[in-house]
Simulated scan of single mutants.
Amino acid sequence: MTDWLSFCRDAVADLEEVLRGLPTRAEREPVLRLGEGGDDTTAIDAAAEDAVVRRLEALGVDLTLVSEELGVRAFGNGGGPTVVVDPIDGSVNAKRGIPFFSLSVAVADGPTMDDVFFGYVYDFGAREEWVAERGRGAFLDGAALHGPGPKDTIEILSLEGTTTEAITAAVPTLRDVARRLRVMGSLALSLCHLAAGRVDAVCCLKPARSIDIAAAQLLVRERGYAIELFEDPPFGRAPLDLGQRSRVVAAGTDALCTQVAAALR
């Protein structure tokens, strides 16, 4: 049986080597091609994904990869677990040297969000390791997440998918919903921060894909908090693929999710 936590830690070590080998924007930013996810594949994206793929190949097991750049790929005979990978979530930050980006890995025993049984997010800036196991809880650096969660009202709302145009359209509708906004640049990490009660809600202003949220959503749900693809519910049935599904909102309660979604509609 694959030890997915050890796999992810080995992948982190590989990606640290990649980052050292591409130390500045000049090396990280060049566009190489168009990725299967629809975004430009830059040098840092390609090098990071290559490192994770080599780790997967070394496992020597049957699995199906869903990844930002490669799309869907069978390893071995295919089938097996579905492994959803975003080697660099927050790639704009990574390219520009802003220390807020992550490795995101989810492992599922079926084709939907409900089937994810292991989630891993590593923050290369803060050096924090976020882990969730279905039915066993959510953890930060090996310690179970507990203590104060998101507030009953939204003091801090983290926005992702944030072009200037998207923020300009959204902010007026959110004035009566949240007291403060944060724009950090990694959806996976923002969802982890919700799981830890550092922020009170998270919303992505563009349609989210499984690679963006599959790992971190398990931390949110293992804490008992709410998350929804409010334009294409229910969340649990969302497929683990590269199709853009819906904007996503997460908060401490279903009612707060509904409040944010209503404002954005």
Results as ranks from 00 to 15, higher is better:
166 A>N: 15
260 V>F: 09
143 A>L: 15
125 G>P: 02
154 I>W: 13
84 V>I: 15
82 T>P: 01
179 R>N: 06
250 A>T: 12
50 D>P: 00
26 A>H: 10
72 V>Y: 01
192 C>W: 04
109 D>A: 14
19 L>Y: 13
62 D>H: 06
68 E>T: 08
76 G>H: 09
48 A>E: 03
81 P>H: 07
262 A>V: 00
128 E>C: 00
158 S>N: 13
190 S>P: 08
69 E>W: 06
183 V>F: 13
29 E>C: 00
98 I>E: 08
161 G>T: 04
240 L>A: 14
188 A>K: 03
189 L>V: 07
224 G>W: 11
116 V>D: 08
36 E>V: 09
86 D>Q: 07
43 A>Y: 00
162 T>I: 03
161 G>I: 05
187 L>H: 08
231 E>S: 14
61 V>M: 09
130 W>F: 15
248 V>P: 03
241 D>I: 04
92 V>T: 14
148 P>N: 11
90 G>N: 04
143 A>C: 11
264 L>T: 10
199 V>K: 08
57 E>R: 11
250 A>R: 12
78 G>N: 05
181 L>G: 11
115 D>F: 02
65 L>E: 14
134 R>K: 15
238 A>H: 11
134 R>A: 15
84 V>G: 09
67 S>D: 12
94 A>L: 12
102 S>R: 00
164 T>F: 15
254 D>L: 12
246 S>K: 13
137 G>M: 12
82 T>G: 03
190 S>H: 03
131 V>F: 05
59 L>N: 02
71 G>N: 06
8 C>Y: 05
118 F>P: 04
80 G>E: 04
66 V>F: 11
43 A>G: 00
190 S>R: 03
210 S>L: 09
56 L>F: 13
99 P>Q: 01
75 F>P: 09
19 L>C: 04
138 A>M: 14
186 S>C: 02
39 D>C: 01
84 V>P: 07
252 G>F: 11
7 F>N: 02
122 Y>N: 01
147 G>T: 12
262 A>F: 01
174 L>E: 09
151 K>D: 14
237 R>M: 13
71 G>F: 09
206 K>M: 10
112 T>P: 00
218 L>R: 05
95 K>A: 12
150 P>M: 11
27 E>N: 01
202 V>Q: 10
10 D>L: 09
156 I>H: 10
48 A>W: 02
68 E>L: 09
60 G>S: 03
246 S>R: 10
28 R>I: 08
37 G>M: 06
214 A>Q: 05
11 A>F: 01
243 G>L: 10
18 V>G: 07
38 G>I: 13
103 L>A: 12
2 T>I: 14
219 L>E: 05
224 G>T: 11
90 G>I: 06
126 A>C: 00
131 V>S: 06
144 A>N: 01
214 A>D: 04
23 P>C: 03
163 T>V: 10
73 R>Y: 02
151 K>S: 15
229 L>G: 11
208 A>Q: 01
32 L>N: 01
118 F>N: 04
50 D>T: 06
140 L>T: 06
44 I>H: 05
148 P>Y: 13
249 V>H: 07
71 G>E: 07
19 L>N: 01
163 T>D: 09
202 V>A: 10
39 D>S: 13
191 L>G: 08
50 D>R: 11
155 E>A: 12
109 D>W: 03
102 S>T: 15
134 R>H: 14
22 L>G: 02
28 R>H: 07
46 A>C: 02
156 I>S: 00
